[in-house]
């Protein structure tokens, strides 16, 4: 038996909205410690990694490890049927070929349940090494979304240059060039609005804006986003999922041919 109840059901809605355009299908691995997901987009340029701890749920039970193959646009459609304030419970039996979703209104006057077919998926699992990154930037997620959107007007790629003074995003194309420079915040009164750069070594990397714009769909999940970078390795774009865990996107860099 698997059952996970989340009073803040809107987190599920936001999470699905964050990944459904990037991934068509994925396996939700459920165990006694929580729910994880790892999947690459169809062109294998990016990887999504989700971890939700059992402790973060209001009720959590998983008697036997369960891998649920899910068609994400379908799950997203069902999640849209939940109200923003609804409590969401996900349930499945051990040998299930379906997953049940129960949406309860806060006042308990409306309860909806949906059942969705699971799909057979055979996906490879990648080992993500523990890495010490050269630069880690924390910034408001809305600012990151804005920068990715704005620079997409100029070109397909963004060059992210990080030094101890701050971080610079640049794009160029037929119409010209654009640079957006963010300096490290002088005071950190409002933690959510701060830009914090933690640098061991300056880096300058090139990434496809198309993917960063997909990642930025996770903006409603968290006020801050964390970018981790080292020379010639995938960029990590991390959004915290409240007390539950995290949503991480890995993006392979563009490399000099």
């Amino acid at each position: 038996m698997f059952e996970a109840r989340l009073v803040q059901g809107s987190l599920w809605k936001k999470l699905l909205e964050s990944i459904k355009d990037l991934l068509n299908e994925a396996i939700f691995d459920c165990s006694s410690t929580g729910i994880t997901l790892q999947a690459m987009d169809s062109s294998h340029v990016s990887l999504v990694s989700i971890s939700m701890n059992s402790d973060g749920f209001d009720t959590y039970r998983c008697d036997r490890n369960l891998s649920m193959g899910i068609h994400l646009p379908s799950l997203s459609k069902i999640m849209k049927c939940a109200g923003n304030d609804d409590i969401i419970t996900m349930k499945a039996t051990d040998d299930a070929d379906t997953v049940s979703l129960v949406f309860e209104s806060q006042n308990n006057e409306k309860v909806s349940d949906y059942e969705m077919k699971l799909i057979d998926l055979d996906t490879e699992h990648l080992g993500i090494p523990e890495t010490e990154y050269s630069c880690v930037v924390k910034m408001p997620s809305s600012e990151f979304q804005r920068i990715c959107r704005d620079l997409s007007q100029l070109g397909d790629s963004v060059v992210i240059a990080c030094t101890k003074e701050g971080v610079k995003f640049s794009a160029s194309g037929e119409l010209g060039t654009g640079n957006i420079k963010l300096c490290q915040s002088a005071s950190t009164d409002k933690e959510e609005e701060a830009v914090v750069v933690d640098m061991n070594e300056a880096v300058c990397l090139t990434f496809a804006l198309r993917y960063l714009n997909f990642f930025a769909k996770a903006t409603p999940l968290s006020a801050q986003v964390q970018l981790s970078m080292s020379k010639d390795v995938p960029l990590v774009v991390e959004y915290k999922i409240s007390e539950l865990g995290f949503l991480r996107f890995y993006l392979a860099p563009k490399i000099e041919d």
């Binding site: 340029v45 990016s46 890995y250 392979a252 860099p253 563009k254 490399i255 000099e256 041919d257």
Partner: peptide
């Protein structure tokens, strides 16, 4: 010119 890398270039299958 720059070429788009893939994730499997960096992370091995477990």
């Amino acid at each position: 010119s720059v070429k788009q890398g893939t994730i499997s270039q960096f992370f091995a299958t477990t």
